[in-house]
Nucleic acid binder design. Structure first.
Lengths: 333, 333
DNA sequence: TTGAAAGCGGTACCAA
DNA sequence: TTGGTACCGCTTTCAA
């Protein structure tokens, strides 16, 4: 089914059908009706490729994330997609599993699609790729990396603020031995998160003992990391996780070792994903407003009005501590 | 950047560049090298739209799911995508949130993309849409609905088998008051799941009291449903959930009411998503092999060899009971 | 208010 | 081994 088939059936030219399909230009009512009828009868669906090739533009946005399995990313995606749909855009997602090579190929595939904009919410960005993207003409929004430019916007969360709040809180209730559980430490932004922890620890130098471990993202990673930690002999009274998703596994593994949370060990997450509330015990965490991030991303990619231009902006977000039941004072002994 | 730019730079025709890009046809080594060089220098990325328009085919698969948030669907997607990547295909996902209208529009968008194949893993299928899809030429694989046809394959899980196993098991350890928690009962396949429960109950007619409730999918839905259930006055000793994702909320709400799992109430999930193991207590559930489903879906859409044809097939899966710690004998009194 | 026709950036066939 | 070129299905002037 092509425009031509519809045109024949409605006895008009393909130009007219195109006008009807896109609701542009003048079309006599009776003609429009005939065309619409033909479209339904023939079950015509415009070829999206021909369309964006001819039109030179598309109403498709792209989004690349590191780990769709982690609800953190999914929440951002859903907010972005909902804005997009409201404005007649679609969103294509790509998942990298924290692999830099996969990111490169995803980016290139996205570029081949001639998108209207691209959101890159990943931790494995390499400078050369940022460079390439900056030189392109595609409107882009980065999360946590890069700097604003003509076509580049940035959304940043002051991760270290949240980390400080977590540590201050744990310290205030009496913890003096803390451990940090991270993942993919080889990646800059994730290394920065670990550094946030270490920097915060410096304030308590001499007072608080600490350690760090890392594995892969997710419950399995949290579990493995905890196993390593306990095997190392260090006995933290509080474990600070880089995100909620890993914390799920940490709690599980502690329980396996007969340690109760928070009686024996306190555990904190980060992100405040919905699951953190459904975990047992519900996790103390730091809220990162994922919906807002999704909305900001959309606004950074698509101009308010059809004619307007996007221009690089920077958004800074301060995360907040959310105290639930996975933390408490350390055991007495 | 277009083929023409590369061609000019390498001083060859666009036909030659096309050959190099696609590694087809004979090209002298020295020429290929020149072209490759030009491609890198110009950062050329083929326009996917032009490509699939001209080629008439695409190496893109589509997948439509009801709820990406539920890890069940994500697991299938990941398996499908991994096969796809291995064979040089990409996968586009669309999410419907169980909305039939959204499904229709997603399907139409997918049709406009002239995909190589489409996996439809949703519960909100309407007969007319199945009909339309069956009449199309697109290779399609359905989960849980439809019947095989020329271009249609089906993957079905004998849901009722799993349900029987769950109920038999609960009965055997002594439960005589059971409740079923479902969602979106207005949708055929989900109503069928509830019916599986009711049918199984018939075997125990007179012996086992039962009730059913429903809300939306996910922890929140499970929580709400449980609230309704408890408010109704019915006091089940076991709650059977339509899936693990809802069970998470059920356990949470029971705890809120001072009921301990499994001491006071046993809870079962369904699907065996990874989270079911990380929940507390780890959920007794029914395993649905999501990876296998993803792989089957791929094999149903893409023929083994380039020249082969796909043809409709049917796959039947028998789910297995997985007993963990969220179930046990009912309280004595 | 409508139609004709020139692209959009590729693919693939046919000639050279 | 290479180049020329007729499409692919649609958008968008420009004329009628």
């Amino acid at each position: 089914m092509r425009l031509e088939d519809v045109a024949k059936r409605a006895k008009v030219s393909i130009a007219t059908v195109s006008r009807v399909v896109n609701s542009v230009g003048p079309v006599k009512n009776s003609t429009r009706a005939r065309v619409l009828k033909a479209i339904t009868e023939l079950k015509y669906h415009p070829n999206i490729h021909a369309r964006s090739l001819a039109g030179g533009k598309s109403r498709t946005l792209g989004m690349i994330v590191s780990n769709l399995e982690n609800p953190f990313f999914l929440d951002i995606f859903r907010a972005l997609e909902s804005d997009a749909h409201r404005r007649g855009y679609e969103v294509l997602v790509a998942n990298t599993d924290y692999r830099a090579r996969q990111l490169v190929s995803s980016v290139h595939l996205m570029m081949g699609r001639r998108l209207a904009g691209l959101a890159v919410i990943v931790s494995e960005m390499e400078p050369s790729l940022i460079q390439e993207l900056t030189e392109s003409n595609l409107p882009i929004v980065f999360y946590d990396v890069g700097t604003p430019a003509r076509n580049i916007s940035n959304i940043k969360v002051r991760y270290e603020k949240g980390m400080q709040r977590v540590v201050e809180y744990l310290y205030s209730v009496g913890h003096r031995r803390m451990a940090f559980v991270g993942h993919h430490i080889s990646l800059e932004p994730l290394l920065d998160r670990k550094k946030s922890f270490l920097d915060t620890m410096k304030r308590y130098a001499g007072e608080v003992e600490h350690a760090t471990v890392a594995d892969c993202d997710g419950p399995v990673g949290g579990q493995q990391a905890t196993r390593q930690l306990l095997a190392s002999g260090f006995k933290p009274t509080a474990i600070i996780c880089v995100n909620d998703f890993m914390a799920l596994g940490v709690v599980r593994e502690l329980r396996e070792h007969g340690l109760e949370v928070p009686r024996d060990v306190s555990v904190t997450g980060y992100d405040n994903i919905s699951l953190s509330e459904y975990a047992f015990p519900p996790l103390t965490t730091v809220n990162i407003p994922r919906e807002m991030i999704g909305h900001l991303a959309f606004s950074a990619l698509v101009p308010e009005h059809e004619d307007a231009q996007v221009r690089g902006r920077e958004f800074l977000i301060d995360p907040e501590l959310v105290i639930r039941e996975s933390t408490g004072p350390p055991p007495k002994n």
